[in-house]
Amino acid sequence: MVEAFNYSQELKQYLHRIIRRVDGLYAIIVSDRDGVPVIRAATENVPELALRPGFLATFSTGTDQASKLGLSRNKAIVSMYTSYQVVQLSKLPLILSFVASSQANTGVLLGLENELSDLLKDIKAAVDITVSQ
C-alpha cells in the first residue's frame, strides 16, 4: 500500500515540476466533465475560484456548443482575462486545465498536451471505471 500511495504523490510532484518549468503557470488540474478534480497541483498564486468545479465545468458546455460552429469537434478553449489565462483541453472523459498568468506563453501550455498524454491515459483508466459505476 505504501507503493500505491506514492503513485498519487509522484504524479503531483511531476505536475509541480512542470509548473516550476513554465514561467507564469500556477496550476494544472485534471478533472472530470463536472469539474470534480482527479489530480491537481497548484501554487499559492492561483486564484482559488479558478479551482472550483463550477468554474472548470463551464468548459464542458463551452466545448459542446463550440463543436456546433461548423469546425468539427472542439479540442481546446483559451480564456484570457486581465491578470490570468485559463487553457482547457478536452480529453474525454477528462478535462485538462491550466491556470496561468496572462503573460505566460499560451503556445507552451497548449504544447503540454503532448507531454501529459501518457499520464492522462493512465488517469483515464482510473476514471472510466468509476464513472460507469
Partner: peptide, 18 residues
C-alpha cells in the same frame, strides 16, 4: 504568446511556444 502564425517545411507548428 507562442501562437503559431505560419509554418513551412520541417518547422513543426507545435514548437511555436518553445
Amino acid at each position: 504568446l507562442g501562437l503559431c502564425l505560419g509554418a513551412r517545411g520541417n518547422a513543426p507548428a507545435h514548437s511555436s511556444g518553445l
